[in-house]
Design a protein around this nucleic acid. Structure first.
Lengths: 201, 201, 201, 201
DNA sequence: TATGAATGAGGCTTCATTCAT
DNA sequence: TATGAATGAAGCCTCATTCAT
């Protein structure tokens, strides 16, 4: 990789990092492209060489960060010594992600706003930098396949779980409303178990 | 009521209606206060006599519209001949609201963005214009009380159901992703039944 | 005086007092008529029954306050035991007013902005509430007449002194630039004495 | 100098000139940034690339114009054949400036409003474009040094003279109150001579 | 006299985007 | 690729003033 290319990559990295920082801390509406460019140390015009507009940047960031989160959760699962089965695996992953978001509320806020299943699915299919061969989608498929029992409609099952967790977690973590995360967890885990069981043939 | 008071009420109504229309059709970001005022036939300054800013208007509209929706759903339930019990009642209400939102997608879009459980709870406590004595909160409490079995943590149960339905419905109705509403319904109803059952003591 | 009239007078008083307060604390540009009316406890429209606009109110206040200041200075002079002659009298009055303004900087700021000799002369001719027969103009004329020597062009002499004192005092009291009030005083007094002497025939 | 730099300078010049014109003719309160930009032939946003707000522009203009005025007065003095000494020099300069302001009342109005000794001192230290090495401050110091007698507190002496002249000139030129400029001059000159003499050791 | 809702012109400022360099 | 001056539309909001009551 020539010096030129690495320089180019540096600017892209700087824009991504700065964008993430600012979106997290101030929200996307209050972050201007001028802010991002200045803080990233590049000219305003340069921004447009890499992104269509700030929403383009945001979408890329959401996909990337979600993907990273699932990746980390899965790695933790692999290194854990819990009793492995579909229910437990899903709950471990949910728990990991909830704890992560709870300790990084700006990240939660950033990811949640305008988050759509579409963006999400894209993120789940995305292969992360560290593990270039496997996406969470692949992993989930594997988990389903390995399950002792047959699961019907696994995608819808995942959809229900993710939306349920996402929506309740946001309210719980950000507003502690109607209960805080620790109080929410048992309810959530019970519900997830119910959902999984109802998809077992 | 003096000539002024009625005039005042008219302007307020005009602003509310116009705001709702424009937020629905263009989204809040692309709707300017100037647009609202002009279309409502009042001066720009008049807007500020009634609302702090456009987010204030939006919050009031969301609360109002949500409240109306629940009210209508409950009225329909009362006039229906289904076998009445907590599970059936909740599913009827969810179904009614989903159909309503499915046939009025702009309303769904409008209500869902930045919808928080907090705003929602406020809406649920709000007494509608038509039925000045009862809020959905009251109704829900009654439904719980009437249930044959004891329900523990009814508020959390409602929270789980509402967030689950809200999040999945949005994706399903707006993007038909991962499935369309008709395909989603049975999954959703099963899940709701599971949830309710797990809260029965 | 009927209740009606006294009520009327009360509103006027309230507007004058509130206007003075707000002009002093925030400046005239940042004070709106709405502010004044609200704080004075009257309706906005009422303001226009008493004043043409806020500049009208300001001019009346400046004239009134200046007049009061000179009145107070003169009263102090009368009760003092200094060696009475034109030079000493003027310096006493100047000193009194400077000390007053130094301890009430908002008053100085308020009076100085846009203060014109025209407004001032009007103020000097105004008879104050407490002493309804005599204005400072009368007093000054008396002082000049009583002087042992003849003074030519007494009005111009007063003009020079007032403008000199006003302009230097403002800079000195507000900014301590180029020197603070205590350092300025001897210079000012010397200059005033020089001026007076040059008007003695 | 690149094409851009020269372009930049042109825009700045245009804004300065237009701002001066409009402030002079309409006053700063009635001059909007939109007016200035439009008349200068630049976009409204461009204004903000050069100035923080219109008061920033005004301050820069006052400093610049004052500086120019003193420069011109000093040049005239150098080319005159009066009997040179501190008193005469100062009176020559005062006279020159008074005549200048008398024949350019809008300039006087513009410079006088909110003029502070602070702004002024800055202007006096400013080196003008034409004569890049010498400021009026330097010149004044030279004049004082060259004086046959020792002058104590020369800065305060200048302060007294400038404030006296400024304040009286304004009233006299703009309102002919209490006398017009020609009538005022001898009084002013006498007073200046008195002041100077009182600072001679 | 007194009110205060309504007006709507007009100010300030931001910022995404372009384009000449 | 990279720059950043310039643009100008667009937004928000304030506020003096009017006028029906």
């Amino acid at each position: 990789m020539g010096k030129w290319d690495s320089n180019k990559k540096q600017k892209l990295e700087a824009l991504l990092n700065t964008g993430f920082e600012l979106f997290q801390s101030q929200g996307i509406n209050k972050t201007s492209i001028a802010d991002i460019a200045e803080k990233a140390g590049v000219a305003k015009g340069t921004f447009y060489l890499y992104f269509k507009d700030k929403y383009d940047l945001r979408n890329r960031l959401i996909a990337h960060k979600s993907s990273q989160l699932f990746e980390a959760a899965y790695n933790a699962l692999e290194n854990s010594d819990i009793d492995r089965n579909l229910e437990n695996d899903l709950i471990f992953i949910v728990g990991y992600i909830l704890d992560e978001l709870n300790s990084n509320k700006p990240l939660l806020t950033f990811m949640y706003k305008d988050l759509s299943w579409g963006v999400f699915k894209k993120a789940l299919s995305e292969t992360t930098i560290d593990n270039e061969d496997v996406s969470f989608k692949d992993i989930y498929e594997l988990m389903v396949k390995k399950a002792k029992a047959q699961i019907h409609d696994p995608e819808i099952m995942l959809f229900l779980i993710i939306e349920l967790v996402g929506a309740t977690a946001y309210s719980s973590i950000i507003y502690s409303d109607p209960v805080n995360l620790d109080e929410l967890k048992p309810h959530l885990y019970d519900t997830i178990r119910s959902i999984v069981r109802s998809y077992v043939e």
